[in-house]
């Protein structure tokens, strides 16, 4: 990618998180996103595949050589892993600043 994708949208962040360490198909990603966000992010098929298309184009995610002929599995690329780590760090720093501000009032 030519420019930094950070900050990520919540949907993209959660999809990257769902794919970390495991290849998943679309429905599995939706369920994992729902679980990871504590039901806060509920993603439908249109949003999911629109996001996946953009993430594949950006080099964050790739289609996997699936063992299941009925499903397409997706996996993180090296860039996707780096981006996820960078966004997690960024969010941690933001949370730290927020805690400091809230704590001082």
């Amino acid at each position: 990618m030519s420019k930094s994708p950070l900050p990520l949208t919540p949907a993209v962040f959660h999809i990257l998180l769902a794919l970390y360490g495991k290849e998943r198909h679309g429905y599995d990603i939706m369920q994992q996103v729902k679980a990871d966000s504590g039901d806060a992010v509920k993603m439908g098929p249109g949003t999911l595949y629109g996001s996946l298309d953009r993430m594949i184009e950006a080099g964050l995610v790739a289609k996997s050589n699936t063992q299941d002929p009925r499903r397409i599995y997706y996996k993180l690329t090296a860039l996707g892993q780096t981006t996820l780590r960078a966004e997690t760090e960024r969010l941690s720093r933001v949370a730290l600043v927020a805690r400091r501000h809230i704590g001082s009032t």
């Binding site: 098929p45 595949y49 298309d53 499903r71």
Partner: peptide
């Protein structure tokens, strides 16, 4: 073209949902 790529999976996901 979007449908060509994802239609089958979207229908499958809907059925699962």
């Amino acid at each position: 073209e979007f449908l060509q790529r994802h239609r089958a999976e979207m229908l499958q996901n809907f059925a699962d949902l």
